[in-house]
Design a binder for these strands. Structure first.
Lengths: 137, 137
DNA sequence: ATAGAATTGTTATATCTCATAACAACAGAG
DNA sequence: CTCTGTTGTTATGAGATATAACAATTCTAT
């Protein structure tokens, strides 16, 4: 079967990302977290007191879509929302959230190591720089 | 703002793929096609007579999800379904589909060139091989 | 200081993508 | 010829993502 799509780096990018997201989601599932949940928790931990809007900007998630995400994390007892001024809320991990975060970072580290190991070493060092050039500018 | 996610190649992969898909979708929009539509058309053109199931297998799209995709292309007059045996259907582009495909390949070529140009040249040759190692195995 | 502009959190809604289960009709292997 | 697997399809649900609207609030510039 001829596969003309195999010629295109853009198609490889899509398929690789989809495959890796699937793998990662599977590894995350035992923690009852989604991908966006785990990123949000890591970002909140690194920036305690961050507001929902600022968080959404860093994760490239619309303000409106942050609401169910944060509700989910709050309902699960993982984060806390505190009014900051009359408008913004300040986000922080709870103790339980910290515990969960430790498990998340363990999963992430293992996953990232696994991912990198799949890339032939002669290409490995070029992987992230090449990707970053495509979205950070 | 600290961004711990920037350390992770997997996160870069996701963000880069999402950014590139957005760009590509925008370039494809004037043709009134979605990403999956364009891939399906390119694959059908390269493999005239392919069945829906085989096409789905190559594109990694479930059989069930091929139905609305192919309905869309057929309704738009771009492809034709012919009964092959009592079970399978054979897919082919119509003349109109060929015209559209020419426009699609033009968009794809321009997009892929634009994408590669964004990658610093010292990383460029490593990009696709690294990605392919993540999903073709 | 104050009017106009921009931001925040939120609700509601729509679309797209993708996964699963079920089913009847059919083909192919042993 | 029977059993097994495949095909196309319907129906359905989950997840992600985009937009518009809104009230409350803060910021900006004169």
């Amino acid at each position: 079967m001829a596969d003309p799509l195999l010629l295109y780096p853009g198609y490889s990018l899509r398929r690789a990302a989809s495959a890796m997201m699937g793998e990662f989601a599977q590894r995350l599932a035992p923690l009852s977290l989604r991908f966006a949940d785990s990123s949000a928790m890591m970002m909140i931990a690194a920036n305690p007191g961050i507001t929902a809007s600022a968080l959404g900007r860093m994760l490239d998630i619309q303000r409106a879509n942050m609401v169910p995400l944060l509700n989910r994390l709050e309902t699960a007892g993982l984060i806390e929302r505190k009014p900051l001024d009359g408008k913004s809320h300040s986000l922080a991990l709870t103790a339980e959230g910290q515990d969960k975060l430790d498990k998340v970072t363990a999963v992430v580290s293992e996953f990232e190591a696994w991912l990198l190991a799949r890339i032939p070493e002669e290409h490995r060092a070029h992987f992230k720089p090449a990707l970053d050039a495509l979205w950070r500018d």
